[in-house]
Design a protein around this nucleic acid. Sequence first.
DNA 1: ATGGATGCAAAGTATTTGCATGAGA
DNA 2: TCTCATGCAAATACTTTGCATCCAT
Lengths: 159, 159
Amino acid sequence: MTDATQLRYTPLVADTEIIFERLRKEGFRLTSTRKAVLRLFLSGESPMTVPELLLRLSTEGISVNKTTVYRELDFLITRKLIREVQLGDGLRRYEYLKGGHHHHLVCVKCKNIECFEMKACLKEFEEQITAEKNFTFIKHSLEFFGICALCNGVTESAR
Amino acid sequence: MTDATQLRYTPLVADTEIIFERLRKEGFRLTSTRKAVLRLFLSGESPMTVPELLLRLSTEGISVNKTTVYRELDFLITRKLIREVQLGDGLRRYEYLKGGHHHHLVCVKCKNIECFEMKACLKEFEEQITAEKNFTFIKHSLEFFGICALCNGVTESAR
DNA sequence: ATGGATGCAAAGTATTTGCATGAGA
DNA sequence: TCTCATGCAAATACTTTGCATCCAT
């Protein structure tokens, strides 16, 4: 329970190439949209909403239709390359699913989202519940909300 | 960590009256809409979306405008009588906030939502993180997804 | 009668669908 | 060439806003 490790997304170009190659082998097309969206997720962004994603892409000079983005997200979710997360404000966000399961520290002030791991976090709890009430666990989501170190350091006057 | 208690919402009429009286004393009006919405939450429903809530009300023969419902929810959230919960499908649900903080077991098959408590669940974890990285915790949300006992018992053919 | 509460219409935002067209492999 | 992928328009779903009216106290 006392085992929290901060996740660091390493924006490995190698990762990108490996994923591209895997998709190609599986018979999917590597269109410019797909590459752009995947690169964006792989670059270590915080979870993004669709409007945010569209803005990011257009800022980079990439013009993509929103319908295409929604469909691309469906595709990537199905391939388990990204996942949807909800952080309490009613918006759907999407983030790169780099191997491990992890959770979020959401700053309610600056809205920054930090990812971190909790090894074997709720395993024993889930096992106990399974034994007690025949509930088969598939997944869980755990989000923490509070004020981050940066915002804690900022004095009222300095805002 | 091994302390899970199932929550049971007791639809106490007394609770309803106490809340009504409190609101009245604070200078808020007890309109028929307010009473109906509050009674619905107090009757021990699972978390509901606004459309679900509107349907429930109209089934009971209560005609309320959706705008009014949204505003009533705002009001009740401000008064900390209900809270918004997100259960992974992108929809906002609302539930009665009966004193205690609790979590949810969401069945992905039948969509049933069970509430339960975890005493001192993540307290020690939060304290550790606070010490490590100056993050001030305000709240957290924890949801479990899986197959409930009922759905586990149902054979494929019986569906 | 006063001000909180309501209803209605309209606008705003997020997401999905149908269909014709475009472009990787 | 053969489909997967895309764009566009429109539909759907959810939520918010402005304003006139209502009604609980």
